[in-house]
């Protein structure tokens, strides 16, 4: 069971809980969510506790992360968008750290379950809709009416815009989930080849060098993907929030 590439996504119940017939057990997924939150919070609380004018290494890292996310948000949504900074910052760090923790062997990857990424994507989606209508009223609907389009093809364009708007949470969540899932399966498959080839005697051990190299390369790639997907998710969040603030601006 432990050798098939799917078992790493298997949920394991640590503390069985049930309310009203719903299974809300504390699982390995919950454990790693708690670990993600605890690790990140403790690091940032520790790093910012000095409040030095001249930062320590930890504080410098925390500041760089802050500036990185703030720059991303300010570039896409303007200074008005900075009121969403806590949300964007939390999303970025939660996804990044969850992805990175998932890179450790035998650790569970929280973001490899579609329900988690869908929930985060819908959090952004509903934030955009609520803020969009609260701030612009019906003017938010201008989002679906691009300026400078001939009247004849306007209905078609509006239909496309509406569909693409409602497809956002799907593409937003599936991109992250699929990348994490596929990457981890590929890693596990190639790592499995090493063991399988190794059991075929000396020639097999020699041949196992190839998937070993592949696994090393893939591991590096997966670290890149883990960062990149957190970045992409956050970047898209910023762009969607920009739509909520400036619906006519595209």
């Amino acid at each position: 069971m432990a050798n098939d590439p799917i078992s790493q996504f298997q949920l394991k119940t640590y503390i069985p809980l049930e309310i009203g017939g719903m299974d809300i057990s504390f699982t390995n997924s919950a454990l790693f969510m708690v670990a993600t939150v605890a690790l990140t919070s403790v690091f940032f609380i520790w790093a910012t506790s000095g409040r030095g004018i001249i930062p320590s290494r930890g504080q410098s890292f925390a500041e760089m992360t802050y500036e990185f996310v703030a720059g991303m948000l300010r570039d896409s949504a303007g200074s008005e968008g900075m009121k969403f900074f806590p949300l964007v910052f939390s999303l970025f760090l939660f996804i990044l750290v969850a992805n990175m923790i998932g890179m450790f062997p035998y650790f569970f990857t929280v973001t490899s379950h579609v329900i988690i990424t869908v929930a985060l994507a819908f959090l952004v989606f509903f934030t955009v809709i609520i803020v969009g209508f609260a701030k612009n009223g019906l003017g938010f609907l201008k989002l679906f009416v691009p300026s400078g389009v001939p009247l004849a093809i306007m209905p078609l364009v509006i239909a496309i815009e509406v569909i693409s708007f409602f497809a956002r949470p799907i593409s937003h969540s599936v991109r992250l989930f699929a990348n994490m899932l596929a990457g981890h399966i590929t890693l596990k498959v190639f790592a499995g080849f090493i063991v399988s080839l190794g059991s075929f005697g000396a020639l097999g051990v020699a041949g196992a060098v190839l998937p070993l190299l592949m696994t090393i390369g893939l591991t590096a790639l997966e670290f890149l993907v883990a960062f990149l997907q957190a970045y992409v998710f956050t970047m898209l969040t910023c762009m969607y929030l920009n739509d909520a603030l400036h619906p006519g601006g595209h």
């Binding site: 057990s25 940032f44 939390s90 939660f94």
Partner: peptide, 20 residues
């Protein structure tokens, strides 16, 4: 597994958002 994951995500991410 959806209910359990959603609940724990809400709890952990909520706490995380608050701390942040």
């Amino acid at each position: 597994s959806f209910a359990s994951q959603l609940l724990w995500l809400t709890l952990t991410f909520g706490v995380f958002y608050m701390i942040m």
